[in-house]
Amino acid sequence: MTVSQTSFGSREPVLEITDLTVKYRGDTRSTTAVDRVSFSIGTGEIFGLAGESGCGKSTIANAIMRLLRDPAEIAGGSIRFGGQDVLAMGPEQLRRFRWQDVAMVFQSAMNSLNPVMTIGDQIVDIFTTHAGYTRKESLRRAAGLLELVRIDPARLKSYPHQLSGGMRQRAVIAMAVALKPSLLILDEPTTALDVVVQQEIMAQIKELQRELGFSVLFITHDMSLMVELSHRMAVMYGGRIVETARAKDIHAAPLHPYTQALMGAFPPLTGPRMPLTGLADGVKFSNIADLEEASPGHFVSPLPALQGAQP
């Protein structure tokens, strides 16, 4: 059973993560990459996860897909998807869960296409493997998919190297939504692309989302892009969420100093030139406390003590 049909339209959260903890085990010590993180994503909601490299945001995405391999280990917490416990799924259940219920687009997704297979064959593969359609029916659907992301269906016969970076990325997005998943995870989907192409791809994702009604977990470090696209967002630092609220609220009034630093990293394009201050090199936050509600729907970790601040 796929959850996409049953849960659509309800107010139930599609994805519920509670106190998720992921550790990377080493010989002598282990590192906690994700530390007691909780959030939920509603149906048709775009949820943004912001943070810098190493903050654990991609680890969360991989944990949801159950893609973590040794030495990473889910040390605690739960991931529930449409009422099912993802962490308790068996291999067969998991195979269906991936791609059919949750699909993921990676940062370098455009390079993840198989260079010796045509785009068409790769999409047909998805349909024949996961949905059991005939080859003819799969090809027809593949053409429809490419049209959905505004690529000429004639390109089904093209090899990946014959397409531009932007087209490849859109083809990958088309493949991700092929089986109408109810959750799409986008891990920095446009970092390698120029702004013009980036904007068009993000618009495309938003349009697809409106059309197909799936939920999105959107991971990036670009706060401007995130605020523009997401409904709700969370900011991560050192494996913990330091602030979560509606995207517009965080943009208007970031409360945590780290969120403020991230916001300040993107100077505005209009208005007078205001001096901004980022986070000083070497500033570290530690012992990030649990979130507290600052105003309705706006949760923030109480202000931590600054350590290692430079003179």
Binding site: V196, Q198, Q199, E200, M202, M223, S224, K248, L269, R273
Partner: peptide
């Protein structure tokens, strides 16, 4: 400031219009 406020070349206008802007409502 003047160049970004009044971009005159279509290519500059294209670039400026594509910069993510949280203040913008709706898409391009």
């Amino acid at each position: 400031l003047d160049l970004l406020a009044n971009p005159a070349h279509p290519y500059t206008r294209l670039l400026v219009s594509a910069v993510p802007d949280p203040a913008r409502t709706g898409s391009y």
